[in-house]
């Protein structure tokens, strides 16, 4: 397979991690109106947990699944801390998530040190492409597809959407709005955890890897105004591909700038039409 095709598949694989991160942000924002700045921590925590579980002798697959579930629980806890107190505004909750993200650094360094870690993914390659990238793409497709079905086809998903659309009306029909918010945080945590677990075999992870993930994930999500999963997926994949192409043909040191420029461009374009900060 040609060099360009390899870069494209690799880029889509990396982009899947951004799309998962962005989707976690979108799920949480849609239901609670909170921009969760601790989103990247879910990924880092889950990935580092996998290294420990594997070292303890747990088999692949099981270790990863357990870590993703743990990330869901951590998401629930972040949601409880950030939004559990009745009457907390979305803006205050945002600041709390920022604080929790910084706090996570301390916990991660305490537990795993400050050196990058990694673990093995699926070995081997087809046509010059590491098989692990195909696994990332396949798992992301299944998980995001299932998430879309949850929202579109189940009453629980409808209740989540209803909570996002009109919390007052949701309470009137008896939906527990606080519980729906916490569920969204748990789902966002699991999606973030999955991003970290999938990408670590091809990119090492350390306590501060959340920044790169969250900048790219947020850029993807902002393309969909933090509310549209389809555009978030498209934005994530686009970013992954452009970053990989820039890294391949120019220099890898420009990769995070790509995400920042992309986010700025979207924000500037949006600001011309609508007040994004107000919408966020």
């Amino acid at each position: 397979m040609g060099e360009l095709a390899q870069y494209l598949v690799t880029g889509v694989g990396i982009g899947c991690a951004y799309a998962l991160t962005g989707s976690g942000l979108v799920v949480i924002y849609r239901v609670t109106r909170v921009v969760n700045f601790a989103q990247g921590s879910f990924s880092v925590f889950a990935a580092l947990t996998v290294t420990t579980l594997l070292a303890a002798g747990l088999p692949h697959g099981f270790a990863e699944t357990l870590a993703v579930l743990l990330a869901g629980v951590i998401g629930l806890i972040v949601g409880l801390v950030a939004t559990g107190k009745p009457g907390t505004t979305a803006q205050s909750a945002l600041i709390v998530t920022l604080g929790l993200g910084v706090f996570a650094y301390a916990v991660e360094i305490l537990l795993w040190g400050d050196q990058p870690r990694s673990f093995d993914g699926i070995p081997g390659s087809v046509g010059g492409i590491q098989k692990h990238y195909l696994l990332i793409i396949g798992v992301t497709a299944v998980v995001l597809g299932a998430t879309a079905l949850l929202f579109a086809r189940t009453d629980l998903g409808r209740a989540l959407t209803a909570t996002a659309a009109d919390p007052y009306a949701a309470r009137i029909v008896g939906i527990d709005v606080t519980r729906m918010g916490l569920l969204a945080f748990a789902l966002g945590g699991a999606l973030g955890g999955l991003a970290g677990v999938l990408i670590t075999p091809v990119q090492q992870v350390s306590f501060d890897s959340d920044v790169a993930l969250v900048v790219s994930g947020f850029s993807a999500a902002i393309l969909g105004n933090l509310t549209r999963p389809g555009l978030t997926l498209a934005g994530g994949l686009l970013l992954g591909v452009v970053q990989t192409l820039v890294g391949g043909y120019l220099s890898t040191s420009y990769q995070s700038e790509v995400a920042l420029i992309f986010m700025l461009a979207v924000l500037v374009a949006r600001a011309g039409r609508r007040d994004v900060l107000e919408a966020a």
């Binding site: 009453d155 959407t161 029909v173």
Partner: peptide, 17 residues
């Protein structure tokens, strides 16, 4: 106070949440 993004049928369903 309808759930405006949801369909009429979905709005009705949630009435029986």
């Amino acid at each position: 106070h309808l759930f405006t993004p949801l369909t009429v049928d979905d709005n009705l369903r949630l009435g029986a949440w």
